[in-house]
Simulated assay, not measured.
Amino acid sequence: MKSAGAKPDSALLSSRLRRHCLACVPALVLGGLLPSMASASARDDFFHAVRFDDVRGLRSLLAQGVDPNLAEPSRGESGLIVALREKSMKVFAVLLDTQDIDVNAQARNGDTALMIASYLGNEPAAEALLARGAQVNRPGWTALHYAAASGSDGIVQLLLKNSAYINAESPNKTTPIMMAAYMGHIQTVKLLLDAGADATLKNELGLTAIDIAQKSGHRDIAEGLTYRLRKEGKL
Rank of each mutant, 00 (worst) to 15 (best):
M1G: 14
S3D: 10
D9M: 03
S14D: 11
S14H: 03
S15F: 13
S15R: 15
S15E: 15
R16G: 01
R16I: 15
R16C: 10
R19Q: 15
H20D: 06
C21W: 11
L22W: 07
C24I: 04
V25K: 05
L28E: 02
L30Y: 04
L34A: 15
L34Q: 12
S36W: 05
M37Y: 13
S39Y: 14
D44E: 14
A49Q: 02
R51P: 01
F52H: 14
D53V: 00
D54N: 15
D54S: 13
G57T: 05
L58D: 02
L58G: 01
S60A: 15
L61P: 00
L61T: 02
L62S: 01
L62W: 01
Q64Y: 00
P68A: 06
N69H: 11
P73V: 03
S74V: 12
S74T: 13
S74E: 12
R75E: 13
R75T: 11
E77F: 04
G79Q: 07
I81A: 11
A83P: 03
R85G: 00
K87H: 14
S88Q: 10
F92G: 05
F92T: 04
V94Y: 05
V94R: 07
L95S: 09
T98K: 05
Q99C: 01
D102K: 06
V103M: 08
N104R: 04
N104H: 01
A105E: 10
A105Y: 02
Q106F: 03
A107M: 12
R108V: 12
R108A: 14
N109P: 01
T112W: 08
I116S: 05
A117P: 07
L120S: 05
G121L: 10
G121S: 06
E123M: 04
A125E: 12
A126N: 08
A126P: 06
A126R: 12
A128G: 09
A128F: 04
L130A: 05
L130I: 11
A131E: 13
G133N: 04
G140I: 12
W141N: 07
A143H: 09
S150F: 02
S152V: 07
S152D: 11
D153P: 01
Q157M: 05
L159N: 06
K161F: 00
K161E: 14
S163G: 00
A164G: 06
A164E: 08
Y165N: 09
N167Y: 04
A168I: 06
S170H: 05
P171S: 07
T174A: 08
T175K: 03
T175D: 02
T175W: 02
M178I: 02
M179Y: 11
A180L: 09
Y182L: 14
H185M: 03
H185E: 03
I186W: 03
V189A: 05
L192Q: 01
L192V: 01
L192R: 01
L193E: 09
A197R: 04
A199N: 03
T200H: 10
L207P: 00
L207E: 15
I210K: 14
A213M: 07
K215M: 13
G217S: 10
H218Y: 10
E223S: 08
L225G: 02
R228G: 00
L229D: 10
R230G: 06
K231D: 08
E232R: 14
E232M: 12
E232V: 02
G233I: 11
K234G: 06
K234N: 07
L235E: 14
